[in-house]
Design a protein around this nucleic acid. Structure first.
Lengths: 116, 116
DNA sequence: CGGCATCCAGGATGATACTG
DNA sequence: CAGTATCATCCTGGATGCCG
């Protein structure tokens, strides 16, 4: 979504919303596929290939990149098992779990608006 | 950040989060300056030039574009007064006002995460 | 005053092929 | 299986100048 990674580090002294924090939050959700991935991972742990099958329209490249970004933002845990063939599993972190109810409200708001 | 305008119109049957609606919501917030503008407009009505002065680093072009996008998404009302010199005022719509508490929670979440 | 038109740079995403 | 490398494309946003 258009939100860029560039930090909006302007100190603007807004009271109602501290858009520094808000921008920080929206930025880490703004990747092209991150919401879908978070939504799915909120239900259970997934392997890379399972996600790839679940979203066949997402290239493996983007899947890898988005998951890595989520991992770096501390929203997803990536676990590598030293096996052959390799196995990698992705799970939500606690901070991501805390985020879910908020996203749920945002989703409800979006749903309400879309109907109009 | 990168959320594109392209609609993610995949019907994915997620229960916890209907990411169609969620993507819809995040997309309309993902513009480079939209959050700042919404935050400011949540306090009072502003004229174009006032906003331009409040955010001197935002080019008038972008200010115009972001406000227009917000208007098209039904978050902002643009009122033109037939005067000379022209006067244009921007206000939040009710749906934008309903959004504010949610953004506030998201902001709080972001603040909490940033500290870590 | 409140924009819009044009041009442009860089980042985000896509397509395809290849590897440990 | 779980990615990475490379190249191509699209889009956002910035710079500058002009207009009703």
């Amino acid at each position: 979504m258009g939100v860029r990674k560039k930090a909006s580090t302007y100190s603007l002294n807004e009271q109602f919303i501290t858009e520094c924090d808000l921008t920080y939050a929206v930025n880490m959700l703004a990747g092209r596929w991150k919401l879908q991935l978070l939504a799915r991972l909120s239900k259970k742990t997934y392997r890379f290939h399972e996600l790839s099958e679940a979203y066949p329209h997402i290239t493996e490249r983007m899947l890898s990149m988005q998951l890595k970004a989520l991992e770096q933002d501390g929203l997803v845990i990536r676990t590598v098992y030293a096996e052959v063939p390799p196995r990698v599993e992705y799970t939500l972190t606690e901070r991501a779990v805390e985020l879910m109810p908020i996203l749920d409200r945002l989703s409800a708001w979006g749903k309400k608006q879309r109907g109009k």
